[in-house]
């Protein structure tokens, strides 16, 4: 990164960090710059994507079929016209139909069948030693099986949560709470890394205090 780049990045980092004290114009300026750059980047990337993969091959390589997705995509802009806004339903139907179907095909096997298969586990484990063979309850597997069943029961909404179902759902709720705790812990870990990286940048690249 050039010296100018380092200074811009450092000042923007401090501007964003200043929110920790209170809302201020420097923070809002940095926030707007970030949002503007992100949106601008997406527009440029998608513009070149349409030109390179759609329009250029149509005009120069004779790929006439490209006209079909280009017209379907262009129909999205009909929402700006009150008279023809209904035409946006056509690309939306394509979008939902195709992406939904492709997503479900893969998910059925990898995220449902194989994940269900991964919960079909032995509850007991055998261990052989010179003094004989021992059989233990496999605690890890028992937790996985119990956790899956109890959590699924919690989301079983068409039966009142009383009796055995109520007890199982309550255990499921505890499993969900533990999962959320694990996720929160992981998020804290990630945020600590972000803070570390920004502090390292300020001390190393900007102020040259760290070697």
């Amino acid at each position: 990164m050039t010296l100018v780049g380092v200074w811009i990045a450092a000042l923007l980092t401090l501007a964003i960090g200043s929110l920790l004290w209170k809302q201020n114009p420097a923070f809002r300026l940095a926030e707007h710059i970030l949002i503007g750059f992100t949106a601008g980047h997406l527009v440029v990337i998608n513009y070149y994507n349409v030109v390179n993969t759609g329009i250029k091959p149509l005009l120069y390589d004779g790929r006439l079929l490209n006209i079909v997705p280009i017209i379907i995509g262009a129909l999205f802009y009909m929402r700006f016209s009150k008279r023809f806004a209904w035409l946006t339903r056509i690309p939306l139907s394509f979008f939902f139909g195709i992406s939904g179907a492709v997503g479900i095909i893969g998910a059925l096997d990898a995220s449902i069948r194989q994940q269900v298969a991964a919960t079909v586990l032995p509850l007991v484990t055998s261990y052989s030693s010179p003094w004989g063979s021992f059989t233990f309850l496999d605690v890890n597997n028992a937790i996985i099986i119990a956790g899956t069943i109890c959590t699924l029961t919690y989301f079983f909404m068409t039966k009142r949560h009383t009796g055995i179902i109520g007890g199982t759902a309550r255990v499921g709720r505890y499993f969900i709470m533990i999962t959320l705790g694990a996720r929160f812990g992981a998020v804290v870990m990630s945020r600590m890394s972000l803070l570390y990286e920004r502090l390292y940048f300020l001390l190393h690249d900007w102020l040259n205090i760290l070697k």
Partner: peptide, 10 residues
């Protein structure tokens, strides 16, 4: 990243 790992762990 760490924040996205728990749902991938299964």
């Amino acid at each position: 990243n760490a924040a996205s790992f728990p749902p991938l762990e299964p």
